[in-house]
């Protein structure tokens, strides 16, 4: 296992009022993303625990693109990763942002 952590300044606050949301499952080639609205509006953080060791630079690239594109201000993402491909990671992160923007608790 490897732990990775990223913090990015962001342009704007993420939409919605929901406090938290979760998407995905931890399985081979899959991951879960828990997203919580716990940070100041101009920040976002991503904490990762992954079975695939040594892919820090790929994660960094995936997360850089994600933050640039979705501007998830105020959100903390916690990821348990079962060795998902980068495109699956991008998709789950985008799904998490969509889910926390929905109505509900």
């Amino acid at each position: 296992m490897e732990d990775l952590s990223f913090r990015h300044p962001v342009r704007s606050r993420a939409d919605g009022a929901r406090r938290s949301a979760i998407i995905g499952v931890v399985a081979s080639g899959n991951l879960e993303v828990l997203v919580e609205r716990v940070l100041p509006d101009a920040e976002c953080a991503i904490e990762i625990r992954t079975v695939a060791v040594g892919f820090g630079d790929v994660w960094s690239a995936v997360i850089g693109d994600f933050v640039e594109r979705y501007s998830p201000g105020g959100l903390k993402f916690s990821i348990n990763d079962g060795g998902a491909r980068p495109d699956t990671v991008s998709l789950r992160l985008a799904q998490a942002v969509r889910l926390i923007a929905e109505n509900g608790q």
Partner: peptide, 8 residues
């Protein structure tokens, strides 16, 4: 194809 195949 997908950019990463089986076993990444």
């Amino acid at each position: 194809g997908e950019t990463f195949g089986d076993k990444n």
